[in-house]
Nucleic acid binder design. Sequence first.
DNA 1: GCTCACTATTTTGTCGACAAAAATTATACA
DNA 2: TGTATAATTTTTGTCGACAAAATAGTGAGC
Lengths: 231, 231
Amino acid sequence: MTDKPTRERKRGSGAQYVYDILREEILDLVLPPGSPIDENQLAERLSMSRTPIREALVRLAGEGLVTPLPNRSTVVANIDFFNLHTFFDALTLMYRVTTRLAGEYHTSADLEIIRSRQEDFARAVERQDALAMIATNREFHAAIAEAGRNSYFTGLFCRLLDEDQRILRLYYSSFNDQLPKRYVGEHEQMIAAIEARDINACDRLAKAHADQIVSQIQSMISRGATANIPL
Amino acid sequence: MTDKPTRERKRGSGAQYVYDILREEILDLVLPPGSPIDENQLAERLSMSRTPIREALVRLAGEGLVTPLPNRSTVVANIDFFNLHTFFDALTLMYRVTTRLAGEYHTSADLEIIRSRQEDFARAVERQDALAMIATNREFHAAIAEAGRNSYFTGLFCRLLDEDQRILRLYYSSFNDQLPKRYVGEHEQMIAAIEARDINACDRLAKAHADQIVSQIQSMISRGATANIPL
DNA sequence: GCTCACTATTTTGTCGACAAAAATTATACA
DNA sequence: TGTATAATTTTTGTCGACAAAATAGTGAGC
C-alpha cells in the first residue's frame, strides 16, 4: 500500500530512508499533528531494527517536526495556533531577506532553476491542483533562498516553509479561489526584480507577497475551513 | 581529569548528559574544529554504551556543531572562514530583530533578568576576564532574545551565538583592549531603549552593536592573533 | 626507495535482547 | 457499582554483539 520494504538496502542509508519517509508523511499530514509514532510498528513496516528509526526521530525532533515525550512515545509536533503571530513574523522576515539576497547574489543558473519552479507552480494553478500548488510554491521560494547563498537563512526558511505546508494542507480546500492566480503574477514580478538586482524592489515585493500569504492563512483559519483531517 | 563517570544515572538522561558535555567542550574549543570524535573512547570515558553517545552526536549534527562523515568518524564542525560574511549577515539581522521584539514584548521580569546578565558582563570586563566576557555577553543577548518571545528567532540566534563563541575563543587574547568597556555602555543604551519600548532605537542600537562586534572579529582575524589553539 | 596489492585491525551502522518505566488490565474492597 | 490497588503487558532507553566499510599495516614488484 505505502512502500514496499525493499529487502536489501545500502549500509548507512537506513536512517536517511526512514527520515525521508517520516518527513514526507508528516508534511503531507498522513501523520496528523499529535499522532503518536510507534517505533516497533515502523520497524516492522520498513523491515529494519529500531536503531535507525530512533536516529530518524532524533533528527526530526531537532527540526521540530516531532516532539519526544520522555519515556513515552514520540508524537508528531502540534501546530501552535496560539503563537501563530511569531510564525508569521519569522516567515515574513525570511521571505524578505532571502529574496533580497537572491537579488544580490544570484547567478544565471539560479535564475533558470527559479523560472523552472515558477513554471511548475503556474501549471499547478492552471490545473487547479491545490496540493501541487502548495508543493511547487514551496520549491519556488526555496530556490530563491538557495540563490541567496546564506545557509543560516535558508535553513530557517525551509523549516518555516515546512510548517507553512502543514498549515496550508489543513485548509487546502480553500485554494480553489482566485488568489493563486495573483500569486503567479507576484512571482513573475519577484523574478524580474531579482534579475534586475533591484534589492529594494525584491524587499518590497517579498513583503507584499508574504503579507498576502499571511492574510490568506488568517482568513482560512478564521473561516475554519478544515478540510481533510480525520482527527 | 575531566569528569568522573558517575556510576548510577537516571534512565533517559544518558544522551542528554553526553550532549551537554560534548556541546560545552566544542564551544570551549576543548575539542577544536575538525578534531574527530571517537565513539568508543567516549563510551568508555563516560562508562556507557555507544547508543546514547550516537544520539547526542545526531543532535549535535542537527545543530551544525559536528559533521558526520558517512562510514567514517564524526568530526567537530569546522569554522567556515570563507563564508564568514553570511555569518555576519545573519548575526547582525538576528541582533536587530531580537532586540526590536524585546522592545515590543518584554515584561518587567524579563528586564530584571537582562539587567542581571548585564551586571555579570560588566563584572567580567572589570576583571579583564576575557573568557567570562564571551560567556556573559552571550547570556546577555540570549536573555534579550528570550524577552522577544519568538522561538524561531531565538533558536537561530542561539546557534549563531554558539558559532560566535567559538570564533571569539580562537582570538580571545585580543580582548584585553578598550573595546569591552565600550560594549558595556552600548548594552546600557540597549536596555534603556528596550525599557522605553522605543523600537527604532532598539533597532539602531542593535545594528551599531552588531557592526562593532563584526568589525572587531574582522580585525582580530586580519591581525591573525590566534591565541590558544594547539592545532 | 616508491607504488600498488593484499591482509589485518579498527570503526561504524545495524541488530536482537533486556530492564526500567509507563500503559493496560485484572482484582479486591467499600 | 465505583474506586483504588496489584498484576500484566507494552514500550522505551540502553546494552553487547556482529558485519560492512574504512584505515593501517605488510610485503611484492619495479
